[in-house]
Simulated assay, not measured.
Amino acid sequence: MIRSLTLSLTLAFASAILPSVALGQAFDVVYETKGGQPSRGSISNMTRDEVVLDVSGVPRTFKVNEIARLTLADEPQELGSARNAVTQSNWNVAAQELRKLEGVAVDRSYIKADIDFFKALVAAKLAMTEGGDKAAAEKALLDFVRANSANWHFYAAAESLGDLAVSSGKYAEAAKYYGPIAAAPFGEYQMKANNSIGRALTAQKQYPDAITRFDAVIDGSLSTPEAAQQKTLASIGKAVCLAATGKADEGLTIVNDIIAKNDPADVTLFARAYNALGNCYLKTGKNKDALQAFLHTDILFYADSESHAEALYHLSKLWATEEKPDRATAARTTLRERYSGSVWATLD
C-alpha cells in the first residue's frame, strides 16, 4: 500500500513539473486537394515529392502537389491547432499554440519536423508582415530544409525563404531560394516559381529577364485551374514590365482585360492586377487614375498583405501630390504599423 501510494505521489509530482501535451488522432491522415474522403493509415515513406501511406496493408502514393493537408498520428493537439491557424493565416494564434510545445519531448520524427516547419514558417510570416527577427526566421527555415530535405514541407519552406528574402530586398537571394521549386517535378510548382523569380527580377529592374520568366509561364501547356491562375499572374507581371520599358499602353490593355474577365473573389489576383494598373498609369503620368487603382487594392483587396503594403506605399505618395497630406500620412502610418516587416515600409 505504501509502495502504491509512493508511486501515485511520484506520478502526480512528475505530471505537475513536466510539460504535458494532449495527443490527438490514431492515424496519419492525408487530405487531398481534389477533396473527397481523407485517407487514413500509417506513413511508410516520405520524400519532398511524395508521401506513401499504408492503408490497411495497401500502400498508396500521394504526390505532394495533390496534398492539401497532412495530419499525424499521436500528434499534439496544439500542433493541430497551430496548423489550422496557419491555414487561416492567423499567424499570432499559430505562434501561441506552438509556444505551448516548448520543452515538450517528441519521439516521432515526422511530428518533430512538422513542429519545426510551422515554427519557422510562422516566424517568417510574422517577420514579413508585423515585423520580427528576419535573420532568426531565415535561420530556422534553413535549418529545417537542411535537416528535412526529404520532407513534404520542403518546397513550402523554400518558398518562404524566397518570400522572406524579397521582403528584405535581397532579390538575388530570393531567386536562389525559389530555384528548387522551379526544378520540382510538378508543372504548377514550376510556374509559381517562375512567377516568383520574375517578380524578384522586376524589383531589380531586370525587365527583359523578368519577361522571359513570365513568358515561360504564359506559354506553358498545363491547363489546370491552378495553372490558369499562374498564367494570369504572369500576364500581370509582364504588364508591369512592359509599362516600365515604355509600353504602358500595352500593359494597360493586358491588365484591363484580366480585370474584366476574372472573378474578384480571387483576392491575390485582383490585388496584383489593380497594383499593376496603378503602376501602368504612373508610367503614363495619370496620377489620379493610378490613385484610384491603388485605392481598389486598399479598400477591396487588402487581404493580400504584400499587395496591400505596395498599394499603401504608392497611396502615401499620390495623396501628397493631390495635396491631401492627412490621407498621405494615414496611408504611411498604416503601412508602417501593419506591415513593418515589408520592404515597402522601408522605402522613402
Rank of each mutant, 00 (worst) to 15 (best):
Arg3Leu: 11
Ser4Pro: 00
Thr6Asp: 01
Thr6Lys: 13
Leu9Thr: 08
Leu11Cys: 14
Phe13His: 04
Ala14His: 06
Ile17His: 01
Leu18Ser: 10
Ser20Pro: 00
Val21Cys: 01
Ala22Asp: 11
Gln25Trp: 07
Ala26Ile: 08
Val29Gln: 08
Thr33Gly: 07
Pro38Glu: 07
Val51Glu: 06
Leu53Thr: 04
Arg60Tyr: 00
Lys63Thr: 05
Lys63Tyr: 07
Lys63Ala: 15
Asn65Gln: 12
Glu66Ile: 01
Ile67Lys: 07
Leu70Arg: 05
Leu70Gly: 13
Thr71Ala: 05
Thr71Arg: 14
Ala73Val: 01
Gln77Cys: 00
Glu78His: 00
Ser81Met: 10
Asn84Pro: 00
Thr87Ser: 14
Ser89Gln: 12
Asn90Ile: 00
Asn92Ile: 00
Gln96Glu: 13
Glu97Ser: 10
Leu101Phe: 04
Tyr110Glu: 14
Ile111Arg: 06
Ala113Cys: 03
Asp116Cys: 02
Phe118Pro: 01
Val122Asn: 09
Val122Met: 12
Gly131Asn: 10
Gly132Thr: 11
Lys134Trp: 06
Ala140Trp: 03
Val145Phe: 03
Asn148Phe: 04
Ser149Glu: 13
Ala150Glu: 15
Asn151Arg: 07
Phe154Gln: 08
Phe154Ile: 05
Phe154Met: 01
Ala156Gln: 15
Leu161His: 05
Leu161Tyr: 02
Leu161Gly: 11
Gly162Ile: 04
Gly162Asp: 04
Asp163Gly: 02
Leu164His: 05
Gly169Arg: 09
Lys170Ala: 14
Glu173Asp: 15
Glu173Cys: 10
Ala175Lys: 07
Tyr178Trp: 14
Tyr178Cys: 12
Ile181Ala: 12
Gly187Val: 14
Gln190His: 09
Met191Cys: 05
Met191Gly: 11
Gly198Val: 03
Gly198Asn: 04
Arg199Val: 08
Arg199Thr: 10
Ala200Leu: 05
Phe214Trp: 12
Phe214Ile: 13
Asp215Lys: 13
Ala216Arg: 09
Ala216Leu: 11
Ala216Pro: 05
Val217Ile: 09
Ile218Met: 07
Asp219Val: 00
Ala228Glu: 14
Gln230Lys: 09
Ser235Glu: 14
Ile236Pro: 02
Ala243Cys: 13
Ala244Phe: 02
Thr245Trp: 04
Gly251Tyr: 01
Val255Ser: 05
Val255Lys: 04
Asn256Ser: 12
Ile258Met: 12
Ile258Arg: 10
Asn262His: 14
Asp263His: 14
Asp266Cys: 05
Asp266Arg: 10
Thr268Pro: 00
Phe270Trp: 05
Ala271His: 07
Arg272Ser: 13
Ala273Glu: 08
Ala276Lys: 07
Gly278Asn: 07
Cys280Ala: 14
Gly285Phe: 12
Lys286Phe: 02
Lys288His: 08
Ala290Val: 03
Phe294Trp: 03
His296Cys: 00
Asp298Arg: 12
Phe301Arg: 06
Phe301Ser: 10
Tyr302Asn: 13
Asp304Cys: 05
Ser305Glu: 14
Glu306Phe: 09
His308Trp: 06
Leu312Phe: 03
Lys317Ser: 04
Lys317Val: 11
Leu318Tyr: 07
Ala320Cys: 02
Thr321His: 02
Arg327Cys: 00
Arg327His: 13
Ala330Arg: 12
Ala330Trp: 12
Ala331Ser: 15
Glu337Phe: 04
Tyr339Gly: 08
Ala345Lys: 08
Ala345Glu: 04
Thr346Asp: 08
Thr346Asn: 05
Leu347Glu: 02
Leu347Lys: 07
